[in-house]
Amino acid sequence: MLLINCPYCGPRPEAEFVNGGQAHIARPADPMSLTDDEWAAYLYMRDNTKGLHHERWRHANGCGRFFNASRDTTTDIIKRTYRMGERPEAEHQGAKP
């Protein structure tokens, strides 16, 4: 079980959280202008990164807030958690803000 550092509440066990999938996927501002391929890419295509991965978590059984985590998917070590609206750190290559 992961120990996840909620930016609002501090470190808590994984069981208190739900995972929200890949982070920093912005909903297209004007969906009607997109092709079917672009819309499908927004809905379904994911990086599935092997290495440093940015993902959303929600502290469902805590403060209830969403935040982001940068986790290495080859070790499951969480390098950093950060609040919504912030960007992954610059040294974290592979970040796609």
Partner: peptide
């Protein structure tokens, strides 16, 4: 597990 991973192990819970 609820998160993506390549570790070939999972949480004990």
């Amino acid at each position: 597990d609820v998160y993506t991973s390549y570790t070939q192990r999972g949480g004990l819970h």
